[in-house]
Computed example of a mutant assay.
Amino acid sequence: MSVDHLSRPGRSPGFTAYYHQRGVAVTDKWLVVHGSRFMIAELHHLERARGPLPSPARSSLYLGLAVMGVAAPVALVFSTPLAWVIAALAAAAALGVMMFSCRRWPASYQMWADYGSRPTLLFETGDGQEFGQVSRALIRAVEHRRRGQLI
Rank of each mutant, 00 (worst) to 15 (best):
R11L: 13
P13S: 12
G14H: 10
F15I: 05
Y19R: 02
Y19F: 15
H20W: 07
R22C: 04
R22M: 06
A25Y: 05
A25I: 04
V26M: 02
W30A: 04
H34L: 12
S36D: 14
A41M: 11
A41P: 11
E42V: 08
H44S: 14
E47H: 13
L53Y: 06
L53P: 03
S55P: 03
S55A: 13
R58H: 09
L63A: 11
G64K: 00
A66P: 01
M68C: 11
M68I: 08
A71F: 01
A72K: 03
P73V: 00
P73T: 01
V74A: 05
V74R: 00
V74H: 00
L76P: 01
W84D: 03
W84L: 08
V85S: 13
V85T: 14
A87K: 06
A88L: 15
A90I: 00
A91N: 07
A91M: 14
A92L: 15
A92F: 12
A93N: 07
A94H: 00
L95N: 11
L95D: 10
L95P: 00
M99E: 14
C102G: 09
R103H: 11
R104H: 08
P106E: 08
P106A: 05
S108A: 12
Y109R: 08
Q110N: 08
M111L: 15
W112S: 00
A113V: 03
G116S: 01
L121N: 12
L122Q: 07
F123T: 06
E124T: 11
E124F: 02
T125I: 05
T125R: 04
G128H: 09
Q129L: 09
E130A: 10
G132A: 04
Q133V: 01
V134K: 02
S135C: 05
A137I: 02
L138G: 05
L138Y: 04
I139V: 13
R140A: 14
H144K: 09
R145D: 14
R145S: 13
